[in-house]
Amino acid sequence: MTRRTDCSYLAADLTADIFVAALENAGQYDPRRGEPAAWLYGIARRVVASHYRGSTRERQAVARLNGRRLLDETDITALDERIDAERAARQLVEQHSTLIEPLRDVLDLVVVDGLTPREAAQVLGLNRATVRVRLHRARRALRAEPASASPRTDLVEHTLEAVA
């Protein structure tokens, strides 16, 4: 058995398994079919093959799990926060798409592009008062919560503060 494995402990375990299988199947031995040694070698071949099939499955399972770990409470909290932030972002995108184009243009220039209201007024060819009014209307529209939406989260509030 030691020639079929690279570990003497494994060889001892497999030898024990072979003799347990031989004792369990002793009633099925038929001397007309061959010598007892050949019968034992047949059992040994099946036990060893079974062991290597099992260890191959185990190695494949370990390889699939390699690099993965169980999530702890911090990971779960971070995932919950990420899901909430993505929900808020989708809500904000929905609300943004419902704004009329003049409000959306001003909001995009100030929030997305980072321009000041004065710079946005110059880009759009409007006076600053008009841009401020449109920003106010856009903020008010974004703060108005649709009936089906969940409570606003920090992302929505942070975006609205950036507009202010």
Rank of each mutant, 00 (worst) to 15 (best):
T153A: 14
V111M: 11
L115E: 03
D113N: 02
L135Y: 06
A144F: 10
T130D: 00
R152D: 10
P146N: 07
R118H: 14
R139M: 05
A138Q: 08
S148V: 04
V131A: 05
L155F: 15
V131I: 09
R140F: 05
T153Q: 11
P117L: 14
S150D: 02
A138L: 08
A147C: 00
S150L: 02
H136R: 14
G114T: 04
R118W: 07
A147H: 04
N127Q: 09
A138K: 04
P151W: 00
A129E: 13
R139N: 05
D154H: 10
L115C: 02
R134M: 11
P146V: 09
L155A: 09
R139D: 07
R152H: 14
R152C: 02
P151R: 12
S148N: 03
A149G: 01
L115M: 13
R134N: 12
L142K: 11
A138T: 08
L115G: 02
D113M: 02
D154F: 04
L135P: 06
Q122M: 07
P146S: 11
R143L: 15
R118K: 15
L124V: 09
V131F: 04
V112Q: 11
A121G: 08
E145H: 08
H136S: 12
G114I: 06
H136L: 10
E145P: 06
D113W: 02
V131T: 10
V133W: 06
D113T: 00
A149Q: 01
V112C: 08
P117D: 13
R132V: 10
R143I: 12
T116E: 01
G125V: 03
A149R: 01
E145L: 15
